[in-house]
Design a protein around this nucleic acid. Structure first.
Lengths: 186, 186
DNA sequence: GGCCACATTGAGTGATCGCTCAATGATTGA
DNA sequence: TCAATCATTGAGCGATCACTCAATGTGGCC
């Protein structure tokens, strides 16, 4: 997964996979049945890792909105240790397979929508406890939120400076927190 | 440029280029000297097209801030005619060359920073005529603005529905317009 | 130990990759 | 008109691509 994540589908060769997996080509094709199937397995692992990471972050949070904000800030805090050159794997997948491998791109699109639904559910919870106005559209908020995350991850990939990265995340948080219903905190 | 834009660097083969350019391999290598050099030429063309497009949009605008907002909205209006599968070519380049072709990725990064500087200059103009508070950091605004554009272009690539795309752009515009100094419009 | 089911091996498959170059064609100036 | 110069051709280069398979281990069971 890490290898595919960093190098992408097209740029990762069987030789790369052999040395990363410590397996000879025959074994690889016995275990997984093609490079594409192996990539899909890696992508699924990434998806479930991401989804569980988000779920455990939101787990038992008193304020869903605050937890959503914190998630953005936490994303950029982990910079330079290992996230260099790693945008969201789903986004990377879309970009280098849409034109050539439709089924992989479709899968990535599906995962992105599932995660978007998780975000929407979190916004729904915020509305349910009165943190956000009822008239706001959770789906719409989720799409905006996911756009912000994609943008942050892209800048992580680019290697934007830590201070600028933090400022960017804080700007996003500010716009998000502005939606909070005032009376709750009073 | 269009071919590279759509398929990306790795997925575009010499055969593809031969039929797109109506040239035999020998001619291609006489005109450009390698696939990489040809890609860099295409990338430069994209960069200058983008930069000029933005410059002409801002040209003689009474309100720089309104023009910046309009630019976001205009981006998503042009959907489905030809922008299917086309995120920002600079972003796509970064994503599929960072791990394998450092010099191409470096060039893309450089172009991105140049465009960011153009955005910052536009925000500076908005500050100069009193549309925005002096204490705001133009560079920071520019980074946020560019992130929004990258996110929008990514959703264009994904093929997000027109209505959702418009709503997303409008949300971005709303957050941007909120910064406007109130007295100017009064 | 002897047998079977299974996992692993790695040399080698045809196809395709980016790229080269001797041969040929077209254009020019005197 | 005729060499000189420049552009174009396309067969084919070695390397690498994703992938296969007969041969060879390896572990479990009686």
């Amino acid at each position: 997964m890490n290898l595919f994540w960093i190098k992408g589908y097209h740029a990762t060769s069987l030789k790369d996979l052999e040395s990363a997996l410590h397996m000879k080509p025959g074994s690889i094709y016995a275990a997984f049945s093609s490079k594409e199937a192996l990539y899909l397995a890696a992508l699924e692992r990434y998806f479930e890792m991401s989804r569980k990471g988000f779920a455990s972050h939101m787990q038992g949070a008193e304020s869903p909105l605050a937890a959503l904000s914190e998630y953005l800030l936490q994303l950029v805090r982990s910079r330079s240790e290992d996230h260099q050159g790693r945008a969201c794997m789903l986004v990377k997948t879309l970009i280098d397979t849409t034109a050539t491998d439709t089924d992989i791109a479709d899968r990535a699109n599906h995962y992105i929508e599932e995660i978007q639904a998780d975000f929407a559910a979190a916004f729904d919870r915020a509305k349910a406890i009165g943190e956000l106005p009822q008239e706001l559209d959770s789906r719409r908020l989720a799409r905006r939120y996911q756009s912000n995350i994609n943008a942050l991850r892209l800048e992580l990939h680019r290697g934007m400076e830590q201070a600028d990265l933090t400022a960017l995340a804080e700007d996003m948080v500010e716009d998000l927190e502005r939606l909070r219903v005032a009376s709750v905190k009073a």
